[in-house]
Design a binder for these strands. Structure first.
Length: 567
RNA sequence: AGGGGUGUCGCCAAGUUGGUAAGGCACAAGGUUUUGAUCCUUGCAUGCGUUGGUUCGAGUCCAGCCACCCCUGCCA
């Protein structure tokens, strides 16, 4: 566990007894899109912190803006969190289930003269708000009496007014240098169906108002959010401090006695950025709706469902979040870090197999056509507990076209005319003849095998190269999808690019059909990961693969030092 | 221009009350290897945005600059 400032704060609080040893966090997504790896950072932080300090972490849907939200997103978010390996404490929470309490607290603010119904149009309100450098002006409705405010708010709630006709505003300070404090709107009129509350409410609370109270209701001790909410913290504190503490306690979970009840503290941390991708929900949604990718779970997407389909494991993502750390400096993490994490996981846990992506036929001239033998290969070079698999060996095989060069470059260790190479787990072969078609394309190699080299190295000569292969007759025809980064610029958001879609990588998906996989893969289950030796890690596509037609997604390549040497 | 933040190795990121720069990724060089994979070893900031100051001593304290990020939704 790496140390970070939030842990320091929590440990201080634990030591001072601020919350009587209690740690209560929450993960509060708005159900308006799919979760991405940036959310994973927050999930790991919130759930991980609770786990670490023997505390609790709630899942709360921040559903105060029904227009953009849906049950579909709620379902996907729940599934993604569980897939990542976390479980929330108790029942799922919804800000919408606090609508009654929120409404009650609004009445309290009005009675205390701390909130008023404003009838400025949105355009007027913007004008009254002032600018970054100039103070705002007070709304002419700011001085309405408590009675009038109560009456108007009651009628807002009753649905008497059309959208936008009035709003409820907190009465704070129109001259504040912090624009969030210039009498922020806390309730707006919206005659729309809510996915949880139906048509019960024609008014909906704003985030700033609902979030802090929801935290207080759930007795959250540390409310962790991203940096852009920093300026909202004074408002978060103002609302909670302006409300009657005893009624806040009474309206909530009452996890403490009224005396021991402590208001939650908002703490901000930097959001996750990764190069060669975008992380904003708006842009991810756009990629989906404009057909730049095939869906929220397209394996090129940084969504959790996309990473899952790509073959990333929950453990690898958790590990990545741990390594990236938590700080307040905005940073851009190299994708290489993510790739390292999945390679580390899969190297240890994925069984090995052979699959030839670009088949080139090899005929062993000295291996009788009727002959065949069954070789035993370990499923993992180190984890012997993973057992063995069987692989037929016969006269006709396939190797990868890239493992043969007619004129080998310097230091080349693969097959070339007259050269020897080891077939992984089998014999050493020598290339005797190259057969080409009319266009000069190499279509077949005639080789001879050394029968004395199964499991032993040949005497008196060194065979450095090892290549993968599959038996031609028993090989499975499979489809392999090769993914590359979605964007070809480190920072697609860079202003100099204009629109981020300008730098979409046209080669981010390459579909290879007619790949030849070893027969042991026949029964591979959806989502199962394998290392295709010398190629990379691949998983069975959880949607498109079937027993009749296996489809593999390349999760990530193996590290390739030869690629560096040869280029 | 007002407010709020951030600046430690190419990328992340630790740095207790000031005491003489963790770790990971990447990269480089060796070694092992029937995956040019893995694994192992070694290397990789006299420097902590910058300029001054305080101090025996500063990434850590003070002051001034500079750069970048966020804030003018009845979005979250």
């Amino acid at each position: 566990m790496t140390s970070h400032f939030i842990r320091h704060i929590i440990e201080q609080d634990l030591q001072s007894g601020k919350h009587a040893g209690r740690v209560q966090t929450r993960f509060p997504p708005e159900p308006n899109g799919f979760l991405h790896i940036g959310h994973a950072k927050s999930i790991c932080l919130n759930f991980g912190t609770a786990r670490n300090y023997n505390g609790r972490c709630n899942l709360r849907f921040d559903d105060t803006n029904p227009e953009k939200e849906s049950q579909e997103f709620i379902d996907s978010i729940k599934a993604d969190i569980q897939w990542l390996g976390f479980s929330w404490s108790g029942d799922i929470r919804y800000a919408s289930s606090y609508f009654d309490a929120l409404h009650e607290f609004a009445l309290q603010l009005i009675r205390a003269g701390k909130a008023y119904v404003c009838s400025l149009t949105p355009e007027q309100a913007r004008e009254y708000r002032g600018t970054l450098t100039a103070p705002g002006r007070e709304s002419p409705y700011r001085t309405r009496s408590v009675e009038e405010n109560l009456d108007l708010f009651t009628r807002m709630r009753a649905g008497e007014f059309p959208d936008g006709a009035h709003s409820l505003r907190a009465k704070i300070d129109m001259a504040s240098p912090n624009i969030n404090m210039r009498d922020p709107v806390i309730y707006r009129i919206r005659h729309v169906e809510h996915h949880q509350t139906g048509s019960t409410w024609p008014i909906y609370p704003m985030y700033d108002y609902a979030h802090c109270i929801s935290d207080a209701i759930e007795c959250i001790t540390h409310s962790l959010c991203t940096l852009e909410f920093e300026d909202h913290r004074p408002l978060y504190d103002w609302i909670l401090q302006t409300l009657d503490k005893a009624s806040l306690h009474a309206a909530g979970d009452r996890l403490t006695t009224p005396e021991a009840y402590v208001l939650p503290r908002q703490i901000e941390f930097a959001r996750l950025n990764i190069n060669y991708t975008v992380m904003s929900k708006r842009k991810l949604k756009e990629l989906v709706t404009q057909g730049c990718v095939k869906g929220w779970d397209d394996p090129r997407m940084p969504t959790l469902s996309g990473l899952r389909r790509r073959g990333y494991t929950p453990a690898s993502i958790r590990n990545f979040c741990e390594r990236v750390g938590i700080s307040r400096s905005e940073s851009v993490v190299d994708v290489g870090m993510l790739e390292h994490c999945i390679r580390e996981d899969l190297d240890r846990n994925a069984p090995r197999a052979m699959c030839v992506l670009r088949p080139l036929k090899v005929t062993l001239s000295n291996y009788p056509a009727q002959q065949s033998e069954t070789l035993q290969l370990p499923c993992h070079p180190k984890e012997t507990a993973m057992g063995m698999r069987e692989l037929p060996f016969e006269r006709e095989l396939y190797i990868d076209a890239s493992d043969f060069e007619e004129v080998p470059p310097p230091q080349y260790k693969r097959l070339s005319p007259g050269a020897e190479v080891r077939l992984r787990g089998a014999y050493v072969i020598r290339c005797d003849e190259v057969r080409k078609d009319a266009s000069g394309q190499v279509v077949e190699l005639i080789c001879s095998y050394d029968a004395a080299t199964l499991g032993v190295n040949p005497q008196g000569r060194k065979v450095a190269g090892v290549i993968h292969w599959v038996p031609a007759r028993e090989a499975l025809d499979v489809e392999v999808r090769i993914y590359d980064r979605l964007f070809n610029k480190e920072n697609p958001d860079d202003k100099s690019i204009g629109d981020y879609k300008q730098c979409l990588n046209p080669d981010s998906l390459q579909v290879l059909s007619g790949c030849k996989a070893e027969p042991s893969l026949r029964s591979a289950a959806p989502e199962a990961s394998f290392q295709f030796e010398r190629e990379g890690y691949f998983c069975v596509d959880r949607h498109d693969s079937s027993a009749e037609r296996l489809v593999f997604n390349r999760t990530v390549t193996l590290r390739d030092s030869w690629a560096k040497i040869s280029s």
